[in-house]
Design a protein around this nucleic acid. Structure first.
Lengths: 262, 262
DNA sequence: CGACTAGTTGAGGCCAGTCAATGTTGGTGG
DNA sequence: CCACCAACATTGACTGGCCTCAACTAGTCG
């Protein structure tokens, strides 16, 4: 990962604010049907749509954005116009407080939709940064709303997606509010595992796309704690770690760890 | 950021789960225009609507539910049909993990809309419990969607509301993930103060509607810690506490406390 | 090779949790 | 009105989990 990605807990992050203008727009308007084959459609917004509706949703996407590792998709404060479907790769979203405190708010992988937090005030509330080379499809939100008005099923999907984001964050709150450090880490690994599996990858062995510091930021821990706990879990035989490669050896024990109240 | 509610952090809460079947439905279909005078309309869903649309929104509400202190509005797992606009009083929402761990997810006062988390899976993800005698107006969600299809402004308001809920939770995550105990408590008090003010009450003196334990649960702290910190803040002259009555004496100092990074 | 970033591990300190005793408040019934 | 009780709250002593500071290693890049 790149300097960028790290979470200078004090003030910095200026390397993001000084943009590396690397993001590239590609015109795909005349390309073959994009969305029809895209995971995004399968997973959420286009679930259960009839052909006509699906076609209209397809038409929402006219361009594609390529991001390189460390590139920023949008910044906090940037005006909101579109949601972004992640076509490939992954990103993190970063919460910034006025005083420089920041925190990783989430890790997002292919098939997920980014930018929901911007709807409220037409301004993005957080910053989205690519963790690796990544492609996203912008979907203008006013046009999403248009389609939603004509197609109740799609409308319902949009609402569902928003609501699930709320539920996802609640789970994270519970984690931050009630779990010990080792439980948080175990929950994090299990969550990643499950999401990789849902995408057809191995659920027992995967690569962490983020640094220890970023993991810690997300979980409300310090990087040393994350490192120590990874070592400990390995020593206890629950996982195997080799740099960013993680293997879950005892999924049951991990779940039990997360589950034990207090 | 939002306030909290009660949190038996271990297992209990059985007093809630054993329902006191006190909730009362009132038919208000023939009552005078309800919503037109209600804060809810002003604040969010009905903002900026023309008369015709406003009328349709009014018609969404046919009944009113009265809750007494401790009554449950809905439980986790209950099937979702409606959102609830809080007309008077206040509630807490409670997150429940399978293992009995729980946490106050939010504290909700008049003018706010409850139940958003149910949209995703048509099932409520948390439990809502009245902190005092409270009145709410159910708004059937399928009818909300209907109106949204016909009225873009209303549609936008619905989306905005959902998105703001996401932003609200993000702020809380930042709090749980990066703040010390005293900062959390100060942030909590300031948030309450600001919300009371928005409702026309005093922003410098108000009554906590929840116990120390509930505050702690919301903030990821133990009740003893909350109590100690309230005493300390009082000793330092920042606030004045007398049971559940709180007076903010040095708002600036409180803000500074919250703001100082690390 | 040196410079730099990411990661690991150790020593020590502090913040918040735990356990426990005591005080306060509010509701109920004699 | 007061006695009583249960729930809520305060305070102290102690503990421990996580943070801080720091040294060291491994890998990468120019």
């Amino acid at each position: 990962m790149e300097a960028a990605a790290a979470l200078p807990n004090a003030i910095p992050l200026r390397n993001h604010v000084m943009p590396r203008p690397r993001a590239v727009l590609r015109d795909v308007s005349r390309a073959q049907p994009v969305c029809s084959t895209c995971q995004v459609r399968e997973k959420c917004l286009s679930e259960g749509l009839d052909a006509a509706t699906a076609k209209r949703v397809d038409e929402l996407v006219a361009t594609r954005i390529r991001l390189r590792k460390g590139d920023t998709l949008y910044r906090a404060g940037a005006s909101f116009t579109s949601l972004y479907a992640i076509r490939s790769g992954s990103l993190k979203t970063l919460l910034l407080a006025e005083d420089g405190r920041d925190q990783v708010a989430g890790y997002h992988m292919s098939g997920e939709v980014l930018g929901l937090d911007g709807i409220g005030n037409n301004v993005h509330e957080c910053q989205a940064i690519a963790l690796e080379d990544t492609e996203v499809c912008p979907m203008p939100f006013d046009r999403i709303e248009q389609v939603a008005r004509d197609h109740p099923t799609f409308q319902r999907n949009v609402h569902r997606y928003l609501s699930r984001e709320i539920a996802r964050q609640r789970a994270l709150m519970l984690l931050l509010g009630t779990m010990r450090a080792d439980q948080r880490l175990a929950a994090f690994l299990l969550d990643l595992s499950q999401r990789y599996q849902a995408r057809g990858y191995s659920s027992s062995e995967f690569i962490l796309r983020m640094t220890r510091e970023e993991i810690g930021s997300y979980l409300g821990l310090k990087l040393e704690t994350v490192s120590r706990l990874l070592s400990r879990l390995q020593q206890e035989g629950l996982i195997q770690v080799q740099g960013r490669v993680v293997k879950l050896l005892e999924r049951g024990a991990l779940k039990e760890l997360v589950g034990q109240s207090a």
